[in-house]
């Protein structure tokens, strides 16, 4: 028995040592001013770090939420700006462009194929329909091609068949914006500008507003180079896009009101 006890005592020396040292540390920090100050300072630092860590973790959790709420606010602002823009056209308030803006997040995006699409996380249930224009904060990026209940497929500007009506800011001549031969996602071509139009490098290209996809006067890009192919009456214009389609996060889908009426009218006329 005594043997076991002594063996236990031997083994017990480690916990005893640790316990006594703990008591010593407690004594030190509670009865010595300097050590107490150091301990509380260190503990405070530690607490501060823990707090910081926990808030940063909290931020991570709420970051997406906050981004979404910011993009919602942005959409409301865009709506306001677009309607205010329309009002400056003049007294004829009936002609005012009015768009409702639906914020969306890009969840898939391709840029290096011939036909590129962007997938967004809003669909039919969020009010998105086919042939709505999609813009980013810096300019147009595409047109809605297909819609499911919760997602929408957007034909990006970098699609071979993408055609956007655009005009030159300075001269007012309009043409159509299309994907050129370059695979560079920042480069597009502007076709159908007649060769008598005055043109210079650096001219700004805007949306024309002729289609119902985008409001009039949104910046698209600037003229990079231009030339007239032999035996042609039209410029070939290469321009640099403002929106960076290779780096999209939040986009805004534009829903133009009264669009059906106009389309109906145009269709009737064409059928006859």
């Amino acid at each position: 028995m005594a043997q076991y006890f002594s063996a236990w005592m031997r083994k017990g020396s480690v916990p005893l040592f640790l316990a006594l040292e703990l008591v010593c540390i407690l004594l030190i920090v509670s009865f010595n001013e300097n050590q107490q100050a150091i301990a509380s300072y260190t503990l405070g630092n530690f607490q501060g770090k823990i707090n910081k860590l926990s808030t940063s973790i909290g931020n991570q959790w709420t970051l997406q939420e906050r981004l979404d709420s910011i993009s919602w606010e942005q959409a409301r602002l865009l709506e306001f700006c677009l309607s205010a823009n329309g009002e400056t056209h003049g007294a004829d308030s009936l002609r005012r462009d009015s768009f409702s803006v639906i914020p969306a997040r890009v969840i898939n995006n391709s840029i290096n194929r011939r036909n590129n699409y962007i997938t967004i996380d809003k669909g039919r249930l969020d009010g998105i329909e086919q042939d709505m224009g999609v813009i980013s904060a810096r300019g147009p990026v595409g047109v809605v091609r297909a819609v499911s209940d919760h997602y929408a497929l957007v034909m990006s500007l970098l699609h071979q068949q993408s055609r956007i009506s655009a005009r030159l800011k300075n001269s007012g001549y309009f043409g159509s914006l299309r994907r050129g031969y370059s695979r560079n996602p920042k480069k597009m071509y502007l076709a159908d500008i007649p060769r008598h139009a005055p043109l210079s490098v650096g001219d700004t290209v805007l949306t024309s507003g002729y289609s119902d996809l985008f409001p009039e006067g949104m910046t698209i890009g600037t003229v990079d180079t231009f030339w007239v192919p032999s035996a042609s009456d039209f410029y070939e214009i290469e321009l640099t896009l403002f929106p960076d389609i290779a780096r999209l996060h939040h986009v805004y889908v534009l829903d133009k009101k009264h669009t059906e009426e106009k389309e109906l009218l145009e269709q009737q006329w064409q059928h006859e």
């Binding site: 020396s13 006594l20 040292e21 008591v23 010593c24 540390i25 004594l27 030190i28 009865f31 010595n32």
Partner: peptide, 13 residues
């Protein structure tokens, strides 16, 4: 309090 004690406890251990 505790300073000499912690040292001598460690030494004894």
């Amino acid at each position: 309090p505790g300073v000499h004690a912690s040292a001598l406890t460690a030494m004894a251990f």
